[in-house]
Design a protein around this nucleic acid. Structure first.
Length: 123
DNA sequence: CGTCTGACGCACC
DNA sequence: GGGTGCGCCAGAC
């Protein structure tokens, strides 16, 4: 922990939600980014699981701003969800092709490291 | 406890 | 560019 202002959230899931809420409008982060910032650098899949729980729920968590490391929307078999995510990103001004955006343009760079233990050295 | 499941990531080919 | 395989780990059971 490197920031005394951070709330003491027990579960990884709650830290994922906290970090995700910090992604500014019009920007995106990868599952790996969120995992790192939430304190488990290699738990990208668990990030997906956490965000998946938000489906069908009324939430202020901008889950649509989290995409995969290729800059693509992760779709399984739920096309309507994928389109919803894409629509929300476009509404925020993210330049999307069919299913991807340019991470170089829109990837969020946090100004603090949250629960990250291994800070990205070149940032 | 053990085992399984993924909105993942990366190293390969 | 695409496709496969494998490691990963939190949470559910």
């Amino acid at each position: 922990m490197n920031d005394d202002a951070l709330p003491d959230l027990e579960s990884f899931r709650d830290r994922v939600y906290y970090v995700t809420r910090c992604i500014p409008e019009g920007m995106v982060a990868t599952y790996g980014d969120i995992a790192l910032l939430a304190g488990s650098p290699r738990a990208a899949r668990a990030v997906g699981q956490a965000l998946n729980r938000l489906l069908g729920q009324q939430t202020d968590i901008p889950w649509h701003r989290v995409i995969n490391a290729q800059g693509r929307i992760s779709i399984r078999d739920d096309m309507s969800r994928a389109r919803r995510q894409r629509r929300r990103l476009r509404e925020e001004g993210v330049q999307m092709t069919e299913w991807s955006c340019d991470l170089a343009d829109t990837r969020w760079s946090p100004d603090r490291l949250f629960w990250s233990e291994t800070p990205p050295d070149a940032m």
